[in-house]
Amino acid sequence: MRGYKQPTVSVIGASGYSGAELTKILARHPSVKLDKLYAFSQAGKKTTDLYPWLAVDMTYEAYDGEFDSDICFLTLPHGEALKLVPDLRNAGKMVIDLSGDFRLKNAEEHLRFYGREKPDDACMTYAMPELFHEEIRNATAVSNPGCYATSIILGLAPLILKPQDSAKVNTVCCSGISGISGAGKTAKTELSFSEMNDNIRAYKVARHQHTPEILQTLGTSATEPSFGFTFTPMIAPLTRGIYTILNIALDKHLPVSEITELYRSFYISAPFVRVREMPPEILHVAHTNFCDIHVAESGKDGSVVVITAIDNLVKGAAGQAVQNMNIMLGYDEALGLT
């Protein structure tokens, strides 16, 4: 447990949707103590003013640069964590950042997809527990994966990262549908009820910021990808959830049963990945830290269809962040999450 008797944790940017989900999980966690909740525009308000369903009676505070807790979660808009993390790390704090500020190793790709510059050395351990468990265990600061990236990487990793003699991935065409909470809490006309009810639309086609994150994690890059990759994100009138369909072209046919067994073997030690016999549904994973995966079809031409489902606020954000904290502290990674 890295010398902590009962670590204290605080959240900077706690008043947004991911921050509220994180507050709920940390408040019931049996082995850490929720210390402070920092917010900016909401400072001075109580948690129950914003989220009456939260069984947490705390007041949001303004962050002034002083941080006394052992562990810091940051749930801030992209660009803000870059300003705060260096001082937190220099103060010896354990840091878990939920933004995209530290995910990408390539500063040029960060500028291209996030629209802002960052230092070349502004990277932290990329914390996807199913792929980088040991690296996370030895880290003191980690970058939490994005929600779309989580759903897509977990759906592709067994086929791309596991050495295979029989088939390799030539192209991936994926489409993902996200709930509206994935866009954050800031009021936007295009996300209002009258615009989104009975509606669905694509956005950031082929330029979503999770694209380089996905490709980097799968051993290639958005600049020079080793396989064809297209990603079409969509938004639908759901509160939470991400539903992803991956159309994969292999250079050789593999039967569904063989691919399914490959996925089961790859995730045999992953407590939050469930390989399903039937297509998953958002309702199956809502309010949980699970990622459900189903190998739906494989054609004689090498085509494969894989479907994944996660809760964007839990496995796609707060739940995975707590899973990473558990690993960093040497706890059971499922502690407080089941």
Rank of each mutant, 00 (worst) to 15 (best):
S10M: 00
V11T: 02
I12F: 13
I12H: 12
G13T: 04
A14G: 06
G16S: 08
G16I: 09
G16N: 10
G19F: 00
L22K: 12
P30S: 14
K33G: 04
A39L: 12
K45N: 01
K46A: 12
T47H: 00
L50R: 01
W53E: 03
L54V: 06
T59I: 15
T59A: 14
D64C: 01
D68Y: 01
D70K: 10
C72Y: 05
L74V: 11
T75Q: 04
L76E: 01
G79I: 08
A81G: 10
A81S: 15
L84S: 02
D87S: 13
R89A: 11
N90V: 03
I96P: 03
D97Y: 01
L98H: 01
S99C: 05
G100Q: 06
R103M: 09
N106I: 02
N106M: 02
N106T: 01
A107S: 08
E109F: 02
H110V: 14
R112A: 11
G115E: 08
R116G: 04
D121V: 03
Y126H: 02
A127Q: 10
M128I: 10
E130P: 04
E130N: 07
E134Q: 15
E135W: 06
T140F: 13
A141C: 05
S151F: 05
A157W: 04
A157N: 05
P158S: 05
L161A: 07
K162S: 14
P163L: 02
Q164M: 15
A167E: 02
K185C: 03
K185W: 02
T186N: 12
T186G: 03
K188G: 00
T189A: 12
L191P: 01
S192N: 12
S194V: 12
S194W: 09
D198C: 09
N199H: 14
N199P: 07
I200Q: 08
I200L: 04
K204Y: 02
E213W: 09
E213A: 15
L215V: 11
Q216A: 00
T217W: 03
L218P: 06
L218D: 10
S221R: 00
S221C: 00
S221N: 00
E224T: 10
E224A: 11
F229L: 08
T230E: 09
I235W: 02
A236S: 11
P237L: 02
L238A: 10
L238T: 05
I245E: 15
L246N: 04
N247D: 12
I248C: 02
I248G: 00
A249G: 08
D251N: 04
K252S: 08
H253F: 10
V256S: 03
T260A: 07
L262Q: 15
P271D: 08
V273T: 10
R274M: 13
M278K: 13
P279K: 07
T288K: 01
D292A: 13
H294N: 08
H294Y: 03
H294R: 01
V295H: 00
A296L: 15
D301I: 04
G302S: 14
V306I: 10
T308P: 14
L313P: 00
A317E: 00
V322N: 06
N324G: 00
L329S: 12
G336W: 11
